[in-house]
Design a protein around this nucleic acid. Structure first.
Lengths: 204, 204
DNA sequence: GGCTAATAAGCTGTAAAAAA
DNA sequence: TTTTTTACAGCTTATTAGCC
């Protein structure tokens, strides 16, 4: 999908390209995007870069979260009774730009920062593939809960999981159709058929 | 100032009108606005309404914050090492709408009534479906107490339970009518009828 | 170049909403 | 409540494009 995320009035991103520079999680309108030195961060990593261990920080009465040097890091979203203290007077705000709306689909856009329109291709490692294949062999059509567990086990996104199963089913189906055709044509030539399957595992 | 805040694609607010229904603080693009039952909340109050004391809640590895019943409350913005635990598998996301950009100044506005086009579709997993079907077969019209038990067993909301039974009864009725029609046309061809049950529903 | 992850178009089943 | 309508999650299939 071709959503556009407006990070600031003059900076727009492809939804598929806007990630945290630290943890690579995708950023969307459900979270806040912080910008610093041309890089984008999720709040967690932005803050962790801001806060030096040993720093004092505080939740001010007006609900702003500060460092010892009094820069405001973020509007506090912590609950009442948060133990952070003491209260500091703060210097002028330096809020990073929050992320903005999904404007519209299919709007032409250019990344004004790292010039890349390349498609992101996930490379699955052996362990992840093994997990997915094992699950697939047991059940090629896992329900949402099952997929959710796979997300946790593999560390992949739900989308990647879904697409992998889609492709796998399709691939398997094609292969089994091809196999049938070959068997009909040459019902006795097993060598040929084995040579055909570059990969094992036919299932179904 | 006449800023417009877009809470969701179809919901815009005067900046001067958009406050948390609980604590009355103004909400703007520096924070996340949550919508529920037509009211707007700041994150703190939205969460505090969601979390019942004694609930278990958790920060999942993928950065989503969950309740014991596995509803995702928000994308977690808590720091690493947060003591919340344990990790839960989560049901499909039900993210509240985040607040979005200051669109432009001096735009005419009307407060549209919230939650117009954002329909959240629950996806039931196999276990939940099994529970519901078993109950349905025993009694397609469960009373309130029965439904209450289903709520506990499935972790679904009462509303979802009710709607599921409504739809299921209707679906079954349609199917049985169709079956009768088919039987009248071909009173002796049982094979055909059995084959029919697997095929899609009438639609129009 | 082969394999396959990602995208996209079109379709299906059904949860949710609206109407009756 | 029942019935109809709407909208969305996830499917299939074909195509495109990134790594090895």
């Amino acid at each position: 999908d071709q959503y556009i995320l407006r990070v600031s009035p003059d900076l727009e991103w492809h939804a598929a390209c806007l990630k945290c520079a630290e943890c690579s999680q995708y950023l969307d309108e459900s979270c806040t995007c912080f910008v610093r030195d041309g890089k984008t961060y999720c709040k967690r990593d932005y803050i962790s870069r801001q806060l030096i261990p040993g720093d004092e920080f505080a939740l001010r009465e007006d609900g702003l979260f500060c460092r010892a040097d009094h820069d405001v890091v973020e509007r506090a979203t912590l609950g009442h009774g948060n133990p952070l203290s003491p209260l500091h007077p703060a210097r002028p705000l330096q809020m990073a730009e929050p992320i903005c709306a999904r404007q519209s689909a299919l709007r032409p856009h250019i990344h004004k920062q790292p010039e890349k329109t390349t498609r992101v291709r996930t490379v699955l490692n052996e362990k992840q593939l093994h997990t997915l294949r094992t699950c697939y062999n047991a059940n090629p059509r896992p329900d949402a809960l099952m997929k959710e567990q796979l997300v946790e086990m593999t560390g992949l996104s739900p989308r990647v999981i879904r697409v992998w199963f889609q492709n796998k089913r399709c691939k398997d189906k094609k292969r089994s159709i091809l196999m049938k055709q070959l068997q009909q044509q040459q019902p006795n030539d097993k060598t040929n058929i084995q040579g055909m399957t570059g990969t094992p595992m036919v299932a179904a």
